[in-house]
Amino acid sequence: MPASLVQTFRAFAYNNTWANHRLLAACGSLGQTEFAAARTGFFPSLQATLNHIHVIDLFYVDALEGGWLGPKAWANEVPYPAVAALQAAQGAIDQRLIAHCDALTPERLDEVVKVNRDSSVQTERRDRLLMHLFQHQIHHRGQAHAMLSETTVKPPQLDEFFAAGEAPLRAAEFKDLGWSEATVWGG
């Protein structure tokens, strides 16, 4: 049976959480100095890049939930200087995104979401906003992945989540996250 669009967004939310979990776990092997060290990228360090992912996730997830946080989300561009604190905060926002996607219906995908931009209110269909959010996360995780390759820590594999043959490799991590294949894929 083909997956519904709702199931596809759910799977993207789980994949997002898994990729963040893997990337931040790898960064946890770095010392604080190496995590904050200047590197080539859109943002100047792993610390800045991964905090950017977090604050933008906070901005959009709040809007998807009907909140009005707006640009206050990034008032502090690096709210979590240490990896452990960032990992906990990112895990919490990722769980909110999963909960949001778990509650989706086909009708809700067509709903308009209002996004507080302080000087204006952006209106966007929920499905389009979710697509933008997932693309943003993938884009910046790729940059962080490249930065990590400049360290002594091997960057983790981030692109095998959907491959059925990789299920045994995911099992332990899914268990750590409190999931099973059925949690992600249904049935």
Rank of each mutant, 00 (worst) to 15 (best):
E34D: 06
A99C: 05
H132C: 09
R108N: 11
V61A: 08
A182P: 01
D127Q: 15
V78C: 13
V55M: 11
N76S: 10
H139S: 11
R10T: 06
D127Y: 13
E160I: 10
A88L: 07
V61M: 05
L23K: 10
Y14T: 03
A26I: 03
G186T: 02
H21Q: 15
L46H: 00
H21N: 13
H52K: 01
S45W: 01
P168R: 14
Q87Y: 05
H140E: 13
L58T: 07
L97G: 03
F12I: 10
A73C: 00
G28V: 02
L97N: 04
L104Y: 06
H132K: 14
V113F: 04
A172P: 03
L5Y: 12
T151P: 06
D176K: 15
N76V: 07
V184M: 00
C27V: 06
R39A: 14
T17G: 07
D94T: 03
E173Q: 14
G67N: 03
W74D: 05
Q47P: 09
F59V: 00
L23A: 12
A37I: 08
A13Y: 02
T17N: 07
D127S: 14
K154Y: 02
R10F: 04
A99S: 13
Q32A: 15
T17P: 02
T40V: 11
S119G: 08
V6Q: 11
F35P: 08
T183E: 02
A3H: 07
I98F: 00
A3I: 02
T8K: 15
V121Q: 14
A3N: 05
R125N: 12
V55S: 04
N116K: 02
H145F: 00
P2F: 07
G67P: 00
G186R: 04
S149A: 08
L30R: 06
T123L: 09
I98K: 01
H52A: 01
D62S: 00
R117W: 12
A99N: 09
A144R: 06
A89H: 01
S29M: 13
E107M: 09
T33V: 11
V78E: 15
H54A: 11
A63G: 01
S119A: 12
R108H: 11
D118A: 13
A37N: 10
K175H: 12
N16W: 03
F174D: 07
A164D: 14
F12S: 12
L86W: 01
V121I: 12
Y80G: 09
W74I: 03
G187L: 09
